[in-house]
């Protein structure tokens, strides 16, 4: 119990004095996961729309694949990306291994099925009658699709939040392809909040690890609160 209290006070004091190490670690986490989301969300939206509203052979198989991909362990994604980017791998020449770019790539691969899956179920849940009503009021094919997507917008927001939550809190893939590198001056290059927690825990500094965990949760929590407000306003 006392370690929890002291973790909280340590977290607050790190935040209050804008600890440069903490800031750089948070910065890497936000930049990597933010970039991964920026790339993954449009791709997922297109996938989900095709799978949710399109009609083509193999659609149900693809849906099943997406839903299966939602739960893929991040270490496995990291391992595959590692093999692809390692010097002897097919993309080894790009020299991306152990850079933030590699982390962005693996998080993208990790969260795209999750975001696609949540968006997909939001689209499928939109009443078929909405599509018919749109048609009956003079919507073109594209307008009809857009109307259904708009009806699923809160589900899309949930998908983005779930994706961000998964990306920023995963350890496995960023550890494998990012390498957990900190510059000699104590500024993070590829160390994220999660990998920093692993490091502190290994060193036996549980309170520092907990403090980082509190910062991580605070970030995810404030984003969700913001999204909750947006949903409640309901005017969009």
């Amino acid at each position: 119990m006392s370690s929890l209290v002291s973790a909280f006070s340590q977290a607050f004091s790190m935040i209050a004095r804008l600890d440069p190490y903490l800031l750089s670690v948070v910065g890497v986490s936000l930049r990597v996961s933010g970039m991964a989301l920026l790339i993954s969300v449009p791709i997922s939206a297109v996938f989900a729309s095709l799978l949710g509203l399109g009609r083509f052979p193999g659609r149900n198989l693809l849906r099943t694949l997406v839903y299966t991909g939602m739960g893929v362990p991040s270490v496995i994604v990291g391992l595959v990306v590692l093999l692809l980017l390692s010097r002897s791998g097919p993309f080894g020449g790009l020299g991306l291994l152990w850079t933030p770019t590699a982390m962005v790539i693996s998080q993208c691969v990790l969260v795209t099925p999750l975001i696609t899956g949540v968006m997909l179920s939001a689209l499928v849940a939109v009443d078929q009658a909405v599509s018919e009503a749109a048609h009956s009021l003079g919507a073109s094919r594209l307008q009809r699709v857009w109307t259904v997507i708009r009806e699923a917008r809160f589900g899309f927001l949930t998908a983005v939040l779930a994706g961000f939550g998964r990306a920023i809190s995963e350890v496995g893939s960023v550890l494998l392809v990012g390498g957990n590198i900190v510059f000699p001056g104590g500024v993070s290059y590829t160390r994220t909040l999660t990998t920093a927690i692993v490091v502190e825990t290994r060193k036996g500094r549980f309170e520092a690890a907990l403090a980082l965990g509190i910062v991580l949760i605070a970030i995810v929590l404030s984003l969700n609160l913001l999204a909750g407000r947006l949903q409640r306003r309901g005017s969009w």
Binding site: A129, A133, S136
Partner: peptide, 14 residues
């Protein structure tokens, strides 16, 4: 189609 409009048995609102 845009010269017609339909109202359904159960109101379907956005």
């Amino acid at each position: 189609r845009r010269r017609m409009a339909m109202v359904f048995q159960d109101p379907v609102l956005l």
